[in-house]
């Protein structure tokens, strides 16, 4: 089942063509890693897909009403903004906004989504703590939990593991993979090629104003494509836990 269709999506920002004619489909069961160098347009592509930026071409999400879209896709932006010192439980509960009838209280069945998301991101001990009193990494996990609580078929996250410690990087990527294994789909932009290779079912390499490669990690993360897109040579080894990549030098 297709959860997202892009057809010839192009975005121009301040006279600069960021990318042109991007088309792909994302279906249930996929955990898609969006990779590419800085400035390749990963954030721009995700925001245009969601209708947060003006674009040419088509995204199936922008044909939906605001409320339909909010029930179809959850979004975790790169900017980790939490304006007020609300408790983690209330922050995560904000994810239920698109599902609530008019009125403010969260019904019992919705509380179950909040509890599950808090549990998934290992935030139970911080439940009643003010978000402002958490570290940057803990706040990031709370924001991922908020997106999970939205309980949508598709979850998109912009660099969700940036700033997380190694254990939480792995467990968070596993959460995105588990969503796919449960029949949903996730799209995450990510710079750690090893984690992307180990947890994503598919990688989309964005560079040179378009898609340079799109397919299973083993087909996308070749030395040639990595050198062409990122301008680095990498040491690459297949371990029992999956492939490991270490950038060596700028080429």
């Amino acid at each position: 089942m297709s959860l997202l269709k892009l057809r010839n999506l192009s975005v121009k920002l301040r006279q600069r063509q960021v990318f042109r004619d991007i088309s792909f489909d994302i279906g249930a069961g996929e955990c898609v890693g969006l990779i590419g160098p800085n400035g390749a347009g990963k954030t721009t592509l995700m925001r245009a897909t969601l209708g947060l930026l003006p674009s040419e071409g088509q995204s199936s999400l922008t044909t939906l009403t605001a409320l339909q879209r909010a029930r179809a896709v959850a979004w975790m932006p790169q900017a980790r903004e939490i304006a007020w010192p609300i408790s983690i439980e209330r922050l995560v509960a904000l994810g239920r906004i698109p599902h609530l009838p008019l009125g403010q209280t969260i019904p019992r069945q919705d509380q179950a989504f909040v509890d599950a998301a808090i549990d998934q991101m290992g935030l139970d001990q911080f439940r009643s703590r003010a978000a402002s009193r958490l570290s940057g990494g803990e706040q990031a996990r709370a924001l991922i939990a908020r997106a999970l609580a939205q309980d949508t078929p598709l979850l998109m996250a912009d660099e969700p593991i940036a700033g997380l410690d190694p254990a939480h990087q792995i467990s968070t990527m596993q959460v995105f993979r588990d969503l796919a294994d449960d029949g949903k789909a996730s799209v995450v932009s990510i710079h750690d090629l090893g984690l992307a290779a180990r947890h994503c079912t598919r990688l989309i390499l964005l560079a040179e104003g378009g898609i340079l490669a799109d397919g299973p990690p083993a087909e996308v993360l070749t030395p040639d494509l990595i050198a062409r897109a990122f301008g680095v040579s990498v040491w690459h080894e297949l371990t029992p836990n999956g492939p490991v990549f270490q950038p060596l030098e700028v080429v």
Binding site: A66, I82, W84, L91, L94, P98
Partner: peptide, 21 residues
């Protein structure tokens, strides 16, 4: 506007993707 103000706690992008116009 109450619900929209809650959603805006997480910024304009997040609020829009939670269905807030």
């Amino acid at each position: 506007t109450a619900r929209g103000l809650d959603a805006l706690t997480l910024g304009e992008d997040a609020a829009q993707t939670m269905g807030i116009n």
